[in-house]
Nucleic acid binder design. Structure first.
Lengths: 248, 248
DNA sequence: CGGCCCATTGAATTGCCTCAACGCTCGTGG
DNA sequence: CCACGAGCGTTGAGGCAATTCAATGGGCCG
């Protein structure tokens, strides 16, 4: 199977054969397998190498002194955890797996070499960082303004589209290996309320969620209900209106 | 008065004379003055040059279809708005002034020249991006987990420390040119409730807030109340424990 | 002086939370 | 093979934090 990072970057730029080879070799140097619910890095640690998720789901989270926990981001296959984090002295948050995960650890220098070798890849990597930031902003909007139904609906839309971008959906369905507690920690809701909201979404025929499989029966309508606007995912390839300019 | 960006970057690295000159000239090429409550860029626009706030307060915000509005970030003097935003086709959020603002518009190429000329400046600029991202994550935690009192307390701590980092505090006081509506839009609370919470904070002797001046009487205690941990601001100069290594 | 923006206050409402209990499924060990 | 416990989902009841609606007052500007 092709490296999901390649698939992800190709949402943005068309990669040359060489680009792909560069990425593929970098991502195969040091591959680690982790179990579910395992910390990768914890708050206070010095930053490690860049981690690229090859398979499975992980998350970024932060814990308050009294134990309250907030999931800050989800990492899906093809996502990188903080390409530049090494610029700070210690991590201000933790990373953990949710499912069993395969990650590729890419050394700082390797990454630098890639960036130097291919301006196109450099641009693509910056693009992933911008999208990560945009997602974080959208979560801020969700938590600040959206109701519980909208928040959950929005999150499901986002995850579905992100998975689809790396080829991990099956028609209207995708895996959703999150518990209701996880969903609550990501949306700032209690697990009890998550449960009731999911029932509401199921009841109105928008989704099915059974076992670990999510099916979105009417993506359009779910997006409308959740006030979801996909623009922030920047899934449109940059060159589409600017192809002539690609040489730059 | 010295350029506030210089002061800000010096929180992180010690800049050479040349570095400062580079920055100072870049920031003086195109200076714009804006009134209060003016949009700088709106959602859907193509990204412009990088804007550096020289004076005044601005914000990033997003509006939902039905008018609900969330302030996503505050820009204080010395902050840059999205050094890399030009990598995407259209803005997914808006920027607006809150007070009268002076900004320096720095062209993409100028920025590139600076980065090429000084690796130290390049690192410092990456650091500002990381801090911006860290602040965004902390807002996610606030909105998701903190109570109204904690949220407002946390925001006040953050703003105060960020202002102090660029020399804009006066002992325990600083300017806070935000209305209670603004504070509500940033914290996801109604302006009515913001009002009541502020009274609570005043009542317990933690702060004064009168006119546009905030005074934090007991920063330690306010931090404790708000579960505030300044680590995410990464205000410690990178070299402090690594000075010997500065040559790299 | 009149009008507007902002802060403040009260009252009624509600979205979501907490607490508590129960059922299901699955893996494990006796 | 069945018993048992753990983790997760589900349900009900009661409570509280924060909201909405509405009205009032102060300060500033034209």
């Amino acid at each position: 199977m092709e490296n999901p990072l390649i698939r992800r970057l190709e949402c943005f730029v068309r990669l040359s054969h060489d680009d792909k080879r560069l990425l593929a070799t970098a991502a195969s140097q040091r591959v680690r397998r982790l179990g579910p619910r395992e910390d990768i890095v914890v708050e206070g640690d010095p930053p490690r190498d860049v981690s690229l998720v090859l398979d499975g789901w992980a998350c970024r989270y932060k814990t308050l002194a009294d134990g309250r926990r907030q999931i800050i981001a989800f990492f899906l296959p093809g996502d990188t955890c903080d390409p530049h984090a090494f610029a700070v002295r210690e991590m201000d948050h933790s990373l953990a797996t949710l499912t069993p995960v395969t990650i590729a650890e890419i050394a700082r220098d390797t990454l630098q070499d890639i960036v130097d070798a291919s301006p196109r890849l450099a641009r693509a990597l910056i693009w992933t960082m911008l999208v990560t930031a945009a997602v974080q902003r959208e979560w801020t909007v969700s938590l600040g303004q959206r109701t519980a139904v909208e928040r959950l609906g929005h999150l499901l839309c986002e995850l579905f589209l992100r998975l689809r971008a790396v080829g991990l959906t099956d028609g209207p369905s995708c895996e959703l290996p999150l518990t209701q507690v996880d969903l609550g920690e990501a949306t700032g809701l209690s697990n009890v309320h998550v449960n009731r909201v999911l029932q509401e979404l199921r009841g109105s025929g928008l989704i099915s969620l059974k076992g670990r499989v999510l099916t979105i029966h009417d993506l359009q309508r779910l997006q409308a209900v959740a006030l979801f606007n996909a623009a922030y995912l920047h899934l449109d390839r940059e060159g589409r209106t600017l192809d002539a300019n690609d040489a730059r």
